[in-house]
Amino acid sequence: MHYQFDFGALLPYWQSFLSGALTTIEITVFSVIIGLGIGIACAIARRSQVAVLRAVVGVYIEAVRNTPFIVQIFFIFFGLSSVGIRMPIIAASVFAMVINVGAYTAEIVRAGMDSIHPSQIEAAQALGLSKFQIYRDIIMLPAIERVYPSLSSQFILMMLATSICSQISAEELTGVANNIQSNTFRSLETYFVVALLYIAITYLMRAAFFGLGLIAFPRRRRLGLGV
C-alpha cells in the first residue's frame, strides 16, 4: 500500500471548503436559536393544565425522537414538495433541523424545569410574582442552567447532523466535500480536511457555549463552578 497524499490538489477549492463550513455554521445557528425557542415553548406546553396541548406536543416530540433525521429531512423536502409545498434547499434544511432541535430541546428543558423544587415557585407566588414572571425568573433560568451541558452537547450533535442535509444537495461542508472529491478523486484528503473543519467548528461552538454560560449564569462564574 503506497498512497501518495496530494493535499495540493485541494488548494484551488479552499474557498468552497470555507463557504461549506460557513453554510454549516449558518444552518446550525439559525436552527439552534429557533429550535431553542420552540423547545422551551414545548417544554412549557408539556407541563400545561390543558390535556390536548400536552398530547399534541407529546406526539410531536415522540415522532421526532423516534425517527431518523434523514427520514425527517426527506419527508420535509421531497415529501412536502409532492403535495405542492416547495422550499429552497437551505430553507428546508433549517426547517428540518428546527423541527428536530425543538423536540430534543423540549425534553431536555422539561427535565430541567421538573428539577426546580415546587417550594421555589411557592416562595415566588407568596411574594406576589405573576405566572409569567415566575416562569421567566424562577423556573427557566435555573432550569436551563442545570441542563446546560446536555443542551450544548445536543446542539453540537445537531451541528454534526447538518451533514445529512447534503442528501438534499445542501451546499454545507459535507455537500461541498462530496463535490470536491468527485472533481479531484482525492477523497481521502478531502474528507480529512472536512473532518478537521468539523472538529474546528465543534471547538468553536464549545467556546461559544462556555462564553454564553459565563454571561448567563453569573453565580457559576462567581463561585468558580464552571459552566
Partner: peptide
C-alpha cells in the same frame, strides 16, 4: 410568608433575592 426551608432563589445573590419582588411586583 417565611418557610421552613427558606426557599431563597439559589441563582440570585442576597440583594437580587430581596430586590426581585420590589422590581417585579
Amino acid at each position: 410568608m417565611v418557610f421552613q426551608s427558606y426557599n431563597l432563589f439559589p441563582h440570585m445573590t442576597v440583594a437580587q433575592n430581596i430586590m426581585l419582588a420590589l422590581r417585579r411586583v
